[in-house]
Design a protein around this nucleic acid. Structure first.
Lengths: 150, 150
DNA sequence: GTATCTGCAAATGCTTTGCACACCC
DNA sequence: GGGTGTGCAAAGCATTTGCAGATAC
């Protein structure tokens, strides 16, 4: 798990402010999903999140999980990752920005940041007269273990 | 359109070899889809490819388009790009390797290569004791025109 | 001839939506 | 109390698959 920049309590406070700001109402599911993602430290699929949340509240539905994930992503509490064709996975956004190394064989994910690449990306965008808003970089690799197996 | 490294005839020859090598049979649909992608010079969705192919042969089905696109991608004749949530888009692989700059506002796509970034990616993979197989990098930007509109 | 390729329609898998009831402010 | 959130089931949408007939070698 990467270093957290913020405590869970602080994030939940921000969530409550965000809800108020948008004229919305509180719900235990929204907080619970954020807690699950904070505590897991990994990249979870909507289904995995749903089954985790269902441990506390069996009636939670997958559609609410999707609705809440969209909201949390829009408000920058979490971020999405498409590691493969099997759908999106989510992680808490309360970490430093990073990109992903994904093992093609076992699916394991490593997070990294390379300041030189980040810098070059801005320059490349400028070179084409565009304004960089965000980026998405995935390195597909064979991890240490999987290199040995093959 | 980016500079082609290879003529259409040369690509079709390679396709025929590849088909023979795999013990498969020729089909006009397979060649036609490759032609469409070669001639378009852009990034087409399966539906767009299908409607293009249907100009010549109205009975071509979308399922064959998907089947053929999978085959052509596996054999490295074309490559896929996921620009947004609306599904995959394909382009001919007979160009130099490149990554994509995508305008978040108008969806326009610019192709680019940055040797420094390419080099750093290999180093990053090595740093984590992994072996880089491929990568996927998309820069999301506002293009020149869309910056002015906003 | 026989195996592959095709078109069609049905199935799949992830995600979204409509609706009636539940819950927050 | 009125609006927002939820669970459920149904719908959507891109993609895949099963099957019977068509086609290549």
């Amino acid at each position: 798990m990467q270093n957290r920049l913020e405590t869970l309590e602080s994030i939940l406070d921000r969530l409550r402010s965000s809800i108020k700001k948008n004229g919305l109402k509180n719900s235990k599911q929204r907080e619970e999903i954020l807690c699950v993602l904070y505590k897991s430290g990994t990249h979870l699929s909507p289904e995995e999140i749903a089954s985790e949340v269902k441990i506390k509240d069996k009636t939670t539905s997958i559609s609410s999980v999707y609705r809440i994930l969209s909201f949390l992503e829009k408000e920058n509490f979490i971020s999405a990752l498409e590691a493969d064709k099997s759908g999106r996975r989510y992680e808490i956004a309360a970490k430093e920005h990073h990109d992903h190394i994904i093992c093609l064989h076992c699916g394991n994910i490593i997070e990294f940041v390379d300041p030189e690449i980040e810098e070059r990306q801005v320059k490349v965008a400028n070179k084409y007269n565009t304004k960089l808003i965000s980026h998405n970089m995935k390195l597909f690799v064979l991890c240490e273990k999987c290199q040995k197996i093959k």
